[in-house]
Structures are given as structure tokens and as C-alpha cells.
Design a binder for these strands. Structure first.
Ligand SMILES: Nc1ccn([C@H]2C[C@H](O)[C@@H](COP(=O)(O)OP(=O)(O)OP(=O)(O)O)O2)c(=O)n1
Length: 895
DNA sequence: TGTATATCTTGG
DNA sequence: GCCCCCCAAGATATACA
């Protein structure tokens, strides 16, 4: 089965498609029940003792469309002593499957049974005896499904795919059957979907719902997988059931139970428990198989509904679980008769009714003023109910009594810590501690969260769905390699998989982390769970990729290097993970590249002509490895500009040593958007040459619009670069004394130099350079700094800044200026130039005018303006400005 | 003090 | 056949300046 996909998740918004459920699940459910009861009737009434009871030992499952139709077939069978069922109850021993054709999936499922065509039933009845099934089999003797032969060969008896030998198929099959993989993938897709959706809503709704008290609803299907899987086996609904991969009916199975119904829970069975243990608790436990498609369908019904009622914000928690802001929805219903709580009750009831009608599964709803309270309310509501927790008395009561472990963000580890160190088991236990005590015990951030929890507060803002920061794949099941070759086979397939995932979301990354799970020394060779990982040591190694990439072979080359570096025996490997970070959207990259080359051409026209050469100014040497790691398009550009005759091979291993030439003037924008590691490499190269070249473009050279279009983490990185440069200028005086060169460059001088030249160049290499180059390099280092200093002194002013600087502003003017700045750039983030001017302005306010309060209040105002803003850049800016004020005033505790 | 990466924790 | 123990984010820890 292909990885799950929610490509056509609803795009309906309130209005157009309102109340129009695309599903007819309600009808479907009724239809199923009807059908089921009809069949029972048939079985009971139509037994006819006058007919030969040829089917008396047969239990036949009629699958899908048949001719004669299933009803008629059932009649033939039951009237002759047989049992026919139209629904598999999971584990009943069916003797015959009656089907015209089977999907590969079903084929797999029914491998053990006799699968025969409907005509077998008809002919046997006519003959008055069971005919041999041979002529009626839909499976030929070679083991191929005859009816499907034309499309795709079906492997009937193939042994399971091995991770190290048939890696592609192993990975495919593993993920197709992994519920945790489905769960994770669904969540990612849902989050992505609602990321764009929410922004549309929020722009209008933010202001109104921020003022009123927020109302959050936490919605969750009851025992989701179990409920949905039960739809097809309604006769088991009153029995203890669970959903699991295991097909065995007895024995000590190590299969996970994904979900069990509430009847099973009475026996102490829980989600995630092994089937073997659950059977000990309840021998009568019924097993259902996964039905991922049906889970998607039910989930879609829920999310469709949520969108159609026009909520203020949606935060998907899982495929079956969602947090929604229903503030507007509730407030709109409030009038003289209807209180806010009444409105919340109505909304919850309507939700529950609608979802049951459309899915035949029950949801529970918890409603509260924040996520914490909604979650607690949900717990009390389960199963099949709802709880509204809006008045402070009941909130106090419910939350205080809550066991810590049941609260969001408090898992086994944290709750153990709290119980051991603070002897706290409920929120009211925790109330006795100060913020500082809590932080000391569990860390600053978590301490703050707990402190707020105790006061029924929770800052979680469900409107913020941050950008994706990583893409990863893990497998820690079925990993059993006999040789390094098998490990390599797997890694090749696995890098293909991660590449596929990157391409699927149109992203590339520039940083790789490899995780290896290695059998722990005290763990047995074979884990308790069949082909499981058992207890392992985890080793992670990471490396830059030197370019934004989604290419499987390229990623493999680095991943494999890391795997080899760990040097673990292949036999001991139990799990492997790949993670790609420092992501960019492919769109960005394309756009930027086009932009940059347009700019390059422009520059060529304006600047290069007068130097008399349209070639690069100062050709020089660069490590070919560095060049080959640049994005292909950039490589091409460089080659064009230096007229490199032959094309550089992408496989840089063979040609590592041959030096090529590179222009010293690379477009600053191109440099600015390169991954940090590459910029460092170029810096290193150019600095080592001792040429006068400023790798990091001056700030004024960076086009603001282009800068804004860059992904956040890159903008952040560029800003950091400038920060670093600035600090160096400040330190220059102290360093100057150290860099007098006499006979030898000392190591201490080197450590200082290193910073400016790029960290990758080693002392050993530097010392081998000719003295003249060393001197030149160091001189260059100083030159570089002086120029940066000059830049810092005359930043390019725009009109607004001139105003800010020249005008004698009062506090309101300043605050208005800040408001305007935030309003214009709230989403794209601050521009550094304005930030610098503001920084200078507040410095001057304090230093020259002695006006501390305007400076302090201005920065505080900025903080208030950006409360709840998801853009990290703004928060970094605020921090920096706060730091400026703190430094200038010498007062640490203002903010 | 901060930044960058490694590791742990959480949740469904 | 047994069985399909994923994956992303946030916080803290650690290393280094
Ligand atoms: N260890 C787990 C926990 C959950 N799930 C899957 C199956 C669940 O049906 C689904 C939703 O998880 P919930 O925690 O919401 O649990 P249920 O919906 O099964 O039950 P409840 O009524 O307690 O929500 O996620 C799983 O595969 N393995």
C-alpha cells in the first residue's frame, strides 16, 4: 500500500460547501446494518431439509460483486446446510471465499483459504454435491491470481522481504503496515494543510477573538481505530476487541495493540499493549485488522465538519483528534437567554451529533478557556460525551485533582521527576512551590509551564503552526544485517526514501543526521518482540551537505560516510534513522537563483565593463571539492565567469586535488543565501589567498525584498553573520597588538585570525604557507574589518529612518513608528536595517538625551505588539534591542 | 553571555 | 509466520567561545 496521503483534504470553507458532507457514511452505516440483519434472516429461515445438505461443513464468505448476486448465493448455500457470511468477523475459520476477483491485498489476506468463483456454488447445488474447486479457483496453480494477471503479478507465497536484500520492497511493505508511520504522516499532512488555511481565517479573526476570552474545544474520536474497524463487524461491537497486525488466534503474541474498545479496557487492556499480554487479561479478546483507508475517511469527515462550521483556528493533533478555537462560534450565540456556557454546550452537542451521523463513530468533546482545560475536560468527557469547563470554580476543582501524568506535556519522565523530587502527584500538590523551585527541578521553560498549569493557565496558542524544520525517516523493526553489503543495500534504498519524501513536499535540505540503533551489550541477540529492536544504544552523527539537495545518491554518499564512521558490526544494527534539516522550499531556491542571476547580469553590465574585462577580476585557486558542493546552477555560473574550459564532474572524489580558478567577486546575494558551511568554505578560500575580497556582502548590498523572500532560518543565519562581524569590529583594538608579525605567526595570533578567516582552515595548513602569504592574509584580515567599520558608520538611510533620526520624537511618535514597522512586517519578520537604526536611536536616547523611559517603553511596546507572533526573527530582534537597553542603562531587570 | 549541536521527552 | 517499535517539535544538556 502506498504511504498515506491526504491530498484531497477538504478545501471547502464556510459558506460555499456548508452542511454538504461529501460522505454518505450515515447511509452507509445503516445499509451495512440492514444487510447484516437480512443475512441473519436468510440463514435462519431458508434452511430447507428437503435439499441435500451439501454445504453443511462450509462457512462461506461472499466477497464483493458476484453473479449470481450475494443474496442469491447466500440463499443457495444456507438452504443446503451451509453458513454464508458477508462480513468477516476477523477470526472465524472461513472455509471458502466466494469471489469473482480479489485485490492483491485481499489475496494476501485469504491466502490460507479456498477462493472459488460463484459458479462453484451454483454448479455444486445443481450437481447435488460439492464439486472439486480446482476448476473454479481464481488462483492458478502457479500461484498467480488469474483475474489480475494482466495487470500485475501477485506474489502469493513469497517469503517476506528482507531489509538487507530486498530493501526497496522491505521499506515499502514496512511503512504500508506501520500504524505509527501512518499516524505521523497523517499529522504532518494535516498540519501542513491547516497551516495555509488558518492564516486566511486568522487575519480577520485574530483581533476580535483576542479581546474576548478564548474558547477552545478538544475533539477526539473514542477508541478511534477500534471504532472504525468495528464498522465492518458490527456484531462484535459488544465484545472486547482490539486492532492489531497479528493474525494468530492464540499464543503469546508480541504484536502491538493499536487501539482497543472500552469493553476491552475493563479488563485492563490498553493501547500499545502487546497482544499476548492482553490475551492473558482477556482470553475472549477479538482481533480486528487495520483499515487505514477507513480511518482516513472518518478523519476527513471530522475535519470537513470543523471547517464548515467556521471555527477561528484549527490545530490538528492527530488523525482523530483536533483542537479548535470556537470563540466566535460561541459568542455569536450568546444573548439574553443563552449564556456562554450554554452556547458551548450547544456547539458540543451539535458536533457530536453530526459526526456520529456522518461516521457512525462517537467523538468526545472537552471545552475550556485554554488548551489545558480543554484537555482535562476531554478526559472527563470520555467516552462518548462532552464536558464544558468554563467557570473558575469547576476548573479549580477538576484541574487540582488531576494526576500530573494525565496533563499535556507531562509524560512518564517528567511525572517521575516531580513525584520523586517534589513528592507531587497532582496539580494542587505543585501549587506549594515557587517558580524558581519548579524551574530548578525541571528546567526553566518546563518550570514556567508547570507554574502556569497550577494557576489554570496555559499559553499554548493553537493559531501558530510553525514551518516544517525537518524531514526524517526511521526504521527500527526488521533490521537484521549479515554483512556490510546488506547495510549498504538498505542505506541506498533508505536514502531514496528520504529523497522521495523531500521531493513530495518540494523541499531540499543542507544538513544530515544519521541515527544508528545498536544492540545494547546486555540485550539478548533476539529481542522479545519478533524482529524488534530490543534495548539499544543510540548513536547519532551529523554532517553538513554543503548544498540544498534532495538527490538520493548525493545524500547517500554523506550518509554512508557517517555509517562507516560509527564502525558498528552490521549484525548488531537494530535500527536506522535519517533526518534532513536546514530546509528550503524548492520554490524559493528556483526563484532566488533566477533573481540572482538577473542581478549578476545587471552587475556585469554596470561594473565590469569599465575594468576592461568581462571576466572575473582576480582569478584564483579554490578547492574543487568546494566548488562541486555548490548548487549546480551556481557552479555553472562560476564556470561561466571564469571561462573554465571543461565541465566539472559532480562526483568530486576523483578530482578533489585539481585546483581550478574561481572569481574573487561572487555576487553577494548568492553568497548570502548559501548555507553557512559553504560561505565559510569560500571565505576560507579567499582569505587564504590573501586577496582583498569581502565575502560577506555589505548590508546595503542586500536587497531587502530578496532578503524577505528567504526562508526564516536563512535570514536568521545571515543576520547572525552581521552580528558576528560587528563584534569583531569592537574587538579590534585588543587584537591589533597581537597581529604584529615578526618572524613567526604565533598560535595565539592564529586563534584570533581564525575567526575572521573561517574556522575550517587549520593551523597546520596555515603554517605551511609562504611567509608573504601569511602576512598578506593577516593584513587582509584587518582591512576587512576596517571596511566593515566604515559600513557600520554610515548605514544607508531611507526616508523613514531619516525621520526617526532627525525628528525629536515624543514617546507616542516612537511607539507609532514601532507599530507601523510591526504592522508592515509582522509576517515576514523585521528588516535588519530598521532594527539597527532603532538600536542606534534608543542608544542615543539613553546616552545623549538621558531619556531612558522612552527607550524602555518603546522596546516593551514592541514586545507587546508581537506577543503570540510565531516569527522567531521578531523575538530575536526584541531580545537584541532589550539587550541594548540593558547594556546602556546598566539595569538588568527591566524586562 | 551567547551559539550550535546532541540528546531526551512527548504524543498519538 | 512470527511482526511491521514513526516522526516531528520543543526543551534541556553539553561543548565551546
Ligand atoms: N500506542 C498507541 C496509541 C494510539 N494509537 C492509534 C490508535 C488509536 O485509535 C489512535 C488514537 O489514539 P488515542 O490516544 O486517541 O486513543 P483511542 O482513540 O484509541 O482511544 P481514546 O478513546 O482513549 O481516545 O492512535 C496507536 O496506534 N498506538
Amino acid at each position: 500500500m502506498a504511504p498515506p496521503k491526504i491530498s484531497d483534504w477538504t478545501k471547502a470553507k464556510n459558506g460555499t460547501n456548508a452542511n454538504k458532507s461529501p460522505l454518505k457514511f450515515d447511509d452507509f452505516g445503516i445499509y451495512m446494518r440492514h444487510k447484516q440483519s437480512k443475512l441473519v434472516e436468510i440463514c435462519k429461515d431458508k434452511v430447507d431439509n428437503a435439499l441435500p445438505q451439501i454445504f453443511k461443513d462450509c462457512i462461506c464468505y461472499i466477497n464483493g460483486y458476484t453473479s449470481p448476486d450475494p443474496r442469491e448465493l447466500a440463499e443457495i448455500i444456507s438452504s443446503r446446510g451451509g453458513v454464508s457470511i458477508q462480513f468477516l468477523n476477523g477470526k472465524t475459520a472461513v472455509t471458502h471465499i466466494i469471489a469473482t476477483q480479489l485485490t492483491p491485498r485481499k489475496m494476501e489476506e485469504f491466502r490460507k483459504c479456498k477462493v472459488v468463483k460463484p459458479q462453484w456454488v451454483v454448479d455444486s447445488a445443481a450437481a447435488g454435491k460439492l464439486l472439486p474447486i480446482f476448476d473454479y479457483s481464481i488462483i492458478d496453480l502457479a500461484g498467480n491470481n488469474m483475474t489480475l494477471k494482466l495487470t500485475k503479478p501477485v506474489q502469493m507465497k513469497q517469503p517476506p522481504h528482507k531489509a538487507g536484500q530486498d530493501s526497496d520492497n522491505f521499506i515499502l511493505q514496512f511503512y504500508a503496515k506501520s500504524r505509527l508511520h501512518h499516524l505521523s504522516t497523517w499529522k504532518s499532512e494535516l498540519k501542513h494543510h491547516f497551516q495555509s488555511h488558518v492564516t486566511e481565517y486568522m487575519t480577520q479573526k485574530a483581533s476580535s477573538s483576542q479581546k474576548d476570552r478564548q474558547i477552545i474545544a478538544h475533539i477526539d474520536f473514542d477508541c478511534f481505530f477500534a471504532s472504525v474497524s468495528l464498522l465492518k463487524f458490527p456484531h462484535l461491537a459488544q465484545k472486547p476487541v482490539c486492532v492489531t497486525n497479528s493474525t494468530s488466534t492464540t499464543g503469546n503474541s508480541s504484536a502491538d495493540i493499536a487501539s482497543c474498545n472500552y469493553i476491552a479496557r475493563e479488563y485492563g487492556i490498553t493501547n500499545g499493549m502487546w497482544l499476548g499480554k492482553a490475551r492473558q487479561l482477556c482470553p475472549d479478546l477479538q482481533c480486528l485488522s487495520y483499515d487505514f483507508e477507513a480511518y482516513e475517511t472518518a478523519s476527513k469527515a471530522l475535519y470537513d465538519y470543523i471547517l464548515n462550521i467556521g471555527v477561528d483556528a484549527v490545530l490538528p493533533v492527530s488523525v482523530d483528534e483536533v483542537l479548535v478555537d470556537i470563540s466566535s462560534l460561541c459568542y455569536a450565540r450568546v444573548n439574553g437567554e443563552v449564556s456562554l456556557a450554554d452556547a458551548a454546550h450547544q456547539v458540543a452537542q451539535e458536533m457530536r451529533q453530526h459526526i456520529f451521523e456522518s461516521t457512525r463513530c462517537t467523538i468526545s468533546v472537552g471545552i475550556g478557556p485554554n488548551v489545558l482545560c480543554a484537555k482535562v475536560a476531554l478526559r472527563r468527557a470520555k467516552p462518548d460525551g462532552y464536558v464544558v469547563l468554563l467557570d473558575s470554580a469547576s476548573i479549580d476543582q477538576e484541574l487540582g485533582a488531576c494526576s500530573l501524568k494525565s496533563l499535556p506535556r507531562i509524560g512518564p519522565s517528567l511525572s517521575a521527576k516531580l513525584s520523586q523530587n517534589l513528592n507531587a502527584h497532582t496539580l494542587s500538590d505543585l501549587r506549594a512551590y515557587t517558580l524558581e523551585q519548579l524551574q530548578k527541578c525541571v528546567g526553566s521553560r518546563t518550570g514556567e509551564v508547570l507554574f502556569k498549569y497550577c494557576r489554570n493557565e496555559d499559553d499554548t496558542d493553537i493559531r501558530i503552526i510553525p514551518d516544517r524544520k525537518s524531514v526524517s525517516a526511521d526504521i527500527s523493526w526488521g533490521i537484521r544485517f549479515n554483512s556490510l553489503q546488506e547495510t549498504e543495500n538498505f542505506m541506498r534504498s533508505f536514502t531514496k526514501e528520504i529523497s522521495r519524501r523531500l521531493k513530495e513536499i518540494n523541499m531540499k535540505g543542507s544538513f544530515l543526521t544519521v541515527k544508528l540503533l545498536i544492540r545494547a551489550k546486555d540485550a539478548p541477540i533476539e529481542s522479545a518482540k519478533h524482529l524488534g529492536s530490543g534495548k539499544c544504544d543510540s548513536i547519532t552523527r551529523s554532517t553538513p551537505l554543503y548544498m540544498y539537495t534532495d538527490e538520493p545518491d548525493y545524500i547517500f554518499s554523506y550518509a554512508w560516510k557517517e555509517v562507516l564512521a560509527v564502525n558498528a558490526p552490521p549484525e548488531e544494527l537494530r535500527g536506522i534513522g535519517l533526518q534532513i534539516t536546514k530546509l528550503v522550499h524548492q520554490d524559493y531556491e528556483d526563484k532566488q537563483q533566477r533573481l540572482n542571476f538577473a542581478l549578476l547580469e545587471e552587475k556585469g553590465k554596470n561594473n565590469k565593463r569599465k575594468s576592461g574585462s568581462d571576466d572575473c577580476d582576480i582569478p584564483s585557486q579554490i578547492d574543487l571539492a568546494v566548488l562541486s558542493q555548490l548548487p549546480p546552477s551556481l557552479q555553472e555560473e562560476i564556470r561561466k565567469r571564469i571561462r573554465l574550459g571543461k565541465v566539472v564532474d559532480a562526483g568530486h572524489k576523483e578530482i578533489e586535488d585539481s585546483p581550478i580558478q574561481v572569481p574573487s567577486q561572487i555576487d553577494p546575494l548568492v553568497v548570502a543565501q548559501l548555507p553557512h558551511e559553504i560561505r565559510k568554505a569560500i571565505e576560507k578560500d579567499i582569505a587564504t589567498r590573501g586577496e582583498k575580497c569581502d565575502v560577506l556582502p555589505r548590508l546595503s548590498q542586500v536587497d531587502q525584498e530578496v532578503f524577505d523572500a528567504l526562508p526564516e532560518h536563512i535570514r536568521q543565519e545571515i543576520m547572525n553573520e552581521y552580528d558576528r562581524e560587528e563584534k569583531e569590529v569592537e574587538n579590534e583594538k585588543e587584537m591589533a597588538a597581537d597581529t604584529e608579525i615578526n618572524d613567526e605567526v604565533t598560535l595565539s595570533q592564529w586563534t584570533i585570525l581564525k575567526e575572521g578567516l573561517g574556522e575550517n582552515i587549520s593551523w597546520e595548513i596555515f603554517i605551511t604557507l609562504p611567509k608573504s602569504v601569511q602576512v598578506q592574509t593577516i593584513c587582509e584580515h584587518h582591512e576587512l574589518k576596517k571596511r566593515h567599520k566604515a559600513v557600520g558608520q554610515k548605514p544607508g538611510m531611507r526616508d523613514t529612518f531619516a525621520k526617526l533620526k532627525g525628528m525629536r520624537m515624543n514617546e507616542d511618535d516612537f511607539d507609532n513608528f514601532l507599530s507601523g514597522w510591526v504592522e508592515a512586517r509582522k509576517d515576514i519578520g523585521p528588516d535588519y536595517e530598521t532594527e539597527k537604526v532603532i538600536g542606534k536611536y534608543i542608544s542615543d536616547l539613553i546616552d545623549i538625551e538621558g531619556n531612558r523611559s522612552t527607550a524602555i517603553n518603546g522596546v516593551k511596546w514592541l514586545d507587546i505588539l508581537l506577543k503570540g507572533c510565531g516569527n522567531q526573527l521578531w523575538h530575536t530582534t526584541i531580545k537584541r534591542l532589550q539587550r541594548t537597553v540593558i547594556d546602556k542603562t546598566g539595569c538588568e531587570v527591566i524586562f
